[in-house]
Design a protein around this nucleic acid. Structure first.
Lengths: 196, 196
DNA sequence: GTCCAGGTGTGACATAGATCAATGCTTTTA
DNA sequence: TAAAAGCATTGATCTATGTCACACCTGGAC
């Protein structure tokens, strides 16, 4: 149940098994089925989610009804709406299981307790968030400077596993293009007509 | 020299003046003139910068020679290329003063020392980076879903001070549009022809 | 087995924003 | 105080990508 989380934490910081026992008391586990929602737009975000196995996505819906995917979360990843989780303002994001998944959940009060009891985890979370910031900044710069095709090729390189497990129209939504455009540029890449 | 930094830190976490003395020994200060570079693409990023006063920008240049601005940094803000700073890989970013500025600089070794001596700062940096991540995620979602005009109007609301101090073509570059498009949409907004 | 929802592909057309080119400010610099 | 550099604006035109509409395929639900 907690092996993956322990592994992930100790990849970044040293933590004894005894210390880790505290974690076990503060998380709850949850199984969800494909298509199940963990959080919906308008709710206050009550949990941070750690994915033991399965696959989640978080996304917003704009005024025109178009979905925009912020993040896919695979095994070993965290996901949450940090803004809503910390401010208790209603969330703009939906979080949905794309596959049957097993998750670890932590509430805000438990999270505070966790950091009080194991202040060394401040460092773990700092590193985690820092890597997430670096990746998001890169994605932002690419979304401003690259063509649709280059963004797709980079995505394929960066997340080959997601390409297999996620429907194309969601990858399009993650990249900020329409499914039609993605379909066409895939055809061009396959036929060698593209710049790739 | 250090008042603003002390103020900013104690806004987020408690820190006595005695503890803060450690900081004073680990930062160096630097004055730069408008247009001066603090870091150039290809360099390994040696410092994190805290802006005491003045204004910096960090940006990349794509293959076509177009600039894309990642961040403006006003008084009280931090800026750095975190990826290069931590991995010692060459940076993709240029950091340049847009006004004469006074900065505090910290090197990687000093930063490590700082966190060893004052582990409570892990929390400060975690909160800082977390807020930066939340803002960057929002900017990314907006860049994928909003029109040029809406992005500009939101920018005006969010950073009215930057609008005054930064040339328009740089705001355009931050928003991911051309200076011509920004000029035109400003005209439309002013004349009331826009949706605003 | 049949039906239907979810997913993908593709053609015809529309459009937001980019590109190119020229003009006239204003500010810096020498 | 003149020249140069930086900046904003505007018109004409181009283009990558979006929009709309429809066809086809597949796998699970019944």
């Amino acid at each position: 149940m907690f092996e993956l989380l322990y592994k992930k934490i100790t990849e970044k910081i040293p933590l004894s098994e005894e210390e880790f026992e505290v974690c076990k008391t503060l998380f709850t586990s949850k199984k969800v089925r494909k298509k199940q929602f963990l959080q919906q737009e308008g709710d206050v975000s009550r949990y941070q989610f750690f994915v033991n196995n399965g696959l989640l996505r978080s996304y917003t819906i704009d005024e025109k009804g178009v979905e925009h995917i912020l993040q896919f979360a695979l095994e070993g990843w965290w996901t949450a709406d940090l803004y809503s989780f910390f401010t208790e303002e209603p969330s703009l994001f939906n979080i949905e299981a794309l596959e049957d998944s097993e998750l670890l959940l932590i509430t805000r009060p438990s999270w505070e307790t966790l950091l009080e009891k194991l202040p060394v985890l401040e460092r773990y979370f700092r590193i985690l968030i820092q890597n997430s910031l670096i990746a998001t900044q890169r994605r932002l710069m690419e979304s401003l400077s690259e063509t649709a095709e280059k963004k797709y090729l980079k995505f394929m390189k960066m997340y080959p596993e997601s390409i297999q497990r996620v429907p194309q129209h969601m990858i399009a939504s993650y990249l900020g293009i329409t499914r039609e455009t993605l379909s066409r540029l895939r055809r061009d890449i396959a036929s060698g007509k593209s710049s790739a």
